[in-house]
Simulated scan of single mutants.
Amino acid sequence: MKEFNPKVTSVNYSPLNIEIKDFEDYELFEKTSINENINSWIHIDPIDNKDAITRITSEYGVHSLIVEDVFSMSHRPKAEEFELYLFTLLKHVEYKNQELYFSQISFILGQKQLFSFGNGLPTRFETIKNRLNKKDSKIRKEGIDYLLLMLIDCIVDNYFIALEAIDEDIQNLEFEILSNPMKKNIQDIYRLKRILIDLKKNIWPMRELMNVLLKSDMIDYKYHIYGKDIYDHIIKSIDIIEGYGDSVSSLLDVYSSTLNTHMNETMKRLSIISTIFIPLSFITGYFGMNFKHQNTVLESQDIYYLSNGLMFLIPVVLFIFFKMKKW
């Protein structure tokens, strides 16, 4: 697979100034020196060139095993504290076209530097960049650890956007099942169950991740209130997922019940039709018998009108009877 040189976006800021630079080639970034007296957010994208990212991070004492974690897409969200930095790995979630998409984002927090790694900058991170551009922005007045919490908060908030879209799909599916159940509804139910399981699997470890951050010396105690707020949002999203899981499971019962109801309605209509035609079949069958002594009866004009009258009257009477019974 072809490796591309990662692009680097450097955001250096202080309460009074901000400088944003985009480097199309990481080698150009390597030639610049980071001012260690101001906060620096360095985003590296994409992360398919291992050698390039190893060169960038090695200058800041990042262990090679951490670089391995950055490249491994199979990891669950986690946080690990080291002597000089704090490593955080989590999943960004998007729900579109009725499918769930995960992208991995990793952070390495130093004393004044915050590195982020991902294939594409999440759209919601642009909100943070816009806030950094404002002179009176709280982010510019706080430490780099506060920026990390704000970025994590953006990722967690995105869970709720995905959950709202999933909730809409669940409601649409429920309406479809109640109005016109079809075989494909079963596939949709199991698709939603799989999506909720995958989502919970990637959000559940976020609780432990936040516990590690709140116990870390790299996160100032005055920012713990923001970390606890993120933790509460994580717990809330897990509760919502579990509630949606129960709703999706109940859709199987709704599907079976609705299908049985539709089948019963069909059988009832067929039974009504049969009930109407049984007397007619009896009359036509009786007078259609070819017995010798029956010919004298069939020659009677009164019998002819009587049989035709009965065949007309019986369906009308039965129809009125069924209507009165609201069948």
Results as ranks from 00 to 15, higher is better:
residue 117 F to N: 06
residue 156 V to Q: 00
residue 10 S to M: 12
residue 51 D to Y: 08
residue 25 D to V: 03
residue 17 N to C: 03
residue 291 F to A: 03
residue 124 R to Q: 10
residue 228 K to P: 08
residue 313 L to T: 10
residue 81 E to D: 11
residue 16 L to Y: 13
residue 131 R to K: 10
residue 32 T to G: 03
residue 171 Q to V: 15
residue 136 D to I: 09
residue 317 V to R: 04
residue 13 Y to K: 00
residue 179 S to H: 13
residue 326 K to G: 02
residue 54 T to H: 09
residue 228 K to S: 11
residue 93 V to Q: 14
residue 323 K to N: 13
residue 234 I to F: 06
residue 148 L to F: 02
residue 269 R to V: 11
residue 296 T to M: 11
residue 311 M to S: 01
residue 310 L to V: 01
residue 251 L to A: 06
residue 40 S to P: 04
residue 228 K to A: 08
residue 209 L to Q: 11
residue 253 D to R: 03
residue 256 S to F: 14
residue 82 F to Y: 13
residue 82 F to L: 02
residue 129 K to R: 10
residue 256 S to E: 14
residue 239 D to N: 10
residue 288 G to M: 09
residue 51 D to W: 03
residue 195 I to L: 10
residue 265 E to R: 15
residue 74 S to Y: 08
residue 84 L to Q: 15
residue 72 S to K: 06
residue 235 I to Q: 08
residue 99 E to H: 11
residue 291 F to K: 01
residue 169 D to E: 11
residue 104 Q to S: 05
residue 319 F to S: 15
residue 274 S to F: 07
residue 285 G to E: 07
residue 143 G to V: 00
residue 152 I to G: 00
residue 237 S to H: 10
residue 241 I to K: 00
residue 44 I to Y: 07
residue 188 D to F: 10
residue 115 F to Q: 02
residue 79 A to S: 05
residue 323 K to M: 12
residue 299 E to A: 11
residue 290 N to V: 01
residue 326 K to W: 04
residue 194 R to W: 15
residue 111 Q to L: 04
residue 295 N to E: 13
residue 143 G to E: 08
residue 60 Y to L: 03
residue 122 P to S: 02
residue 10 S to G: 03
residue 109 L to A: 01
residue 264 N to T: 03
residue 238 I to E: 06
residue 76 R to Y: 06
residue 130 N to C: 02
residue 145 D to F: 02
residue 182 M to C: 09
residue 157 D to V: 05
residue 125 F to C: 01
residue 221 Y to E: 15
residue 28 L to H: 09
residue 23 F to S: 01
residue 95 Y to P: 11
residue 293 H to D: 12
residue 294 Q to M: 13
residue 92 H to L: 11
residue 314 I to C: 02
residue 198 D to A: 15
residue 301 Q to F: 04
residue 233 H to Q: 05
residue 229 D to V: 15
residue 214 L to I: 14
residue 23 F to I: 03
residue 155 I to V: 11
residue 185 N to F: 04
residue 115 F to S: 02
residue 234 I to M: 06
residue 164 E to F: 04
residue 78 K to L: 00
residue 18 I to W: 04
residue 243 G to W: 02
residue 166 I to Y: 05
residue 297 V to Q: 05
residue 287 F to M: 09
residue 280 L to P: 04
residue 283 I to M: 03
residue 273 I to M: 12
residue 247 S to R: 13
residue 135 K to V: 01
residue 276 I to H: 05
residue 292 K to A: 13
residue 299 E to Y: 05
residue 82 F to T: 02
residue 153 D to A: 00
residue 256 S to L: 15
residue 139 I to A: 05
residue 94 E to K: 12
residue 276 I to R: 04
